[in-house]
Design a protein around this nucleic acid. Sequence first.
DNA 1: TAACAATATGACGAATTTGTGAAAAAAGTT
DNA 2: AACTTTTTTCACAAATTCGTCATATTGTTA
Lengths: 223, 223
Amino acid sequence: MKVLLAEDDVYLGELIVHLLKKKGVEHVDWVQEGEDAYDYALASFYDVIILDWMLPNGDGVSVCQRLRKHGYHGAILMLTAKDAVQDRVEGLEAGADDYLVKPFEIDELMARLKALSRRTFAPIQEEIVRWGAFEVNRTTHTLTKNGEQMILTPREFQLLDLLLQNKGRVLTRDIILDRIWGYDADVSMKTIDATVKLLRKKIGDERQQLIKTVRGVGYTIEK
Amino acid sequence: MKVLLAEDDVYLGELIVHLLKKKGVEHVDWVQEGEDAYDYALASFYDVIILDWMLPNGDGVSVCQRLRKHGYHGAILMLTAKDAVQDRVEGLEAGADDYLVKPFEIDELMARLKALSRRTFAPIQEEIVRWGAFEVNRTTHTLTKNGEQMILTPREFQLLDLLLQNKGRVLTRDIILDRIWGYDADVSMKTIDATVKLLRKKIGDERQQLIKTVRGVGYTIEK
DNA sequence: TAACAATATGACGAATTTGTGAAAAAAGTT
DNA sequence: AACTTTTTTCACAAATTCGTCATATTGTTA
């Protein structure tokens, strides 16, 4: 689970981050200002955003409103010190999915986060990289050419991905071995050549136009 | 908006029904027992179910649990007289999306209902999905082929539904586990394979033409 | 162009992943 | 409580992928 926390109180912020991590939330981003919350939310995907009601530089309610206006569909949980019905209603009207009144217990926060992320219908995030006539899907390990999907084996995919991420640079065998098999791997250099061959065959790269060999150095995909 | 209210207190029940209608909720069904709530929920579609914590003949928490187990994906709001954190957490853990502590104001109930229905309704969800020779009814959890109805178990249905909602993409085992069993579920990955097998058998997918395996990644239903 | 070094290729067994059926465990019904 | 259905686990079978090796091909340099 990936969470964005917008809380200006340093003590409370640190505490929540600490507790969330302890409870097994993989990734927690923490910002202290409303503007930052807005930017972070739009810049990457979060399962839940925890927004403090009062924030310097853009309060929680208006950040929430703007996010919804912008078409943001992820779950938003509002934190508030106020317990007045009218305020709570205002937060929900602004587009928050839930709120929690301070002070609260971490167990309740976790339960609410779980409930929220469970209900999130956000589409599965897909990272797609274009490469000439190909479309590379980094989450599903698939490669599409002219609408036709081909399936790369794990090794083939890792290699292609590595080469694409370093497009224009020549990767030495040492580096490839390190990045794909790990520095302590127990495989011979020849394995790399073999994998390159399998990948070339699968993508139809007969004349080695797509993945080029740099003799004496390694392999590369040109820019 | 269509709402199911499960509340045994006649006075409160009548009041809520009256107020909801006054606030513009088109359709309100009101039951007074836990078993009835369960049956009504599975029999037709509601935007939100308002479940009282204490109900004769099946309390709110267990009704909620059973509904989720059965693959019910509509929003559930729990009503409770208790304000103890542990009780609230218990309700959320049972699969409720939200709770409200009695006594509450009708404005707050309305705001929460709106927030809940907005969240579950945000993405367009077809009630009946066509899939080749099949017709999938997401409300009644049934699958029809050539007019012949087959019965899927909850798990089988959830899996099929998940795959169909993501037609054309490959779902990794991690994501499947997350979406069907929950990210903190305590089942082995093999359970997924087993469920896939049961589903394939039931829909007559001997050659794995309908549900395809993507080795090293997961499963998919192609577009 | 001969000789050498680096890379490509294809085949084969080992390792990993997925499929399968049976049986245990859990949940739901009567 | 007895019974049925569903879910999960487990052990083994089948399929696929991986890594190595022997050999072929290509490129470089003297």
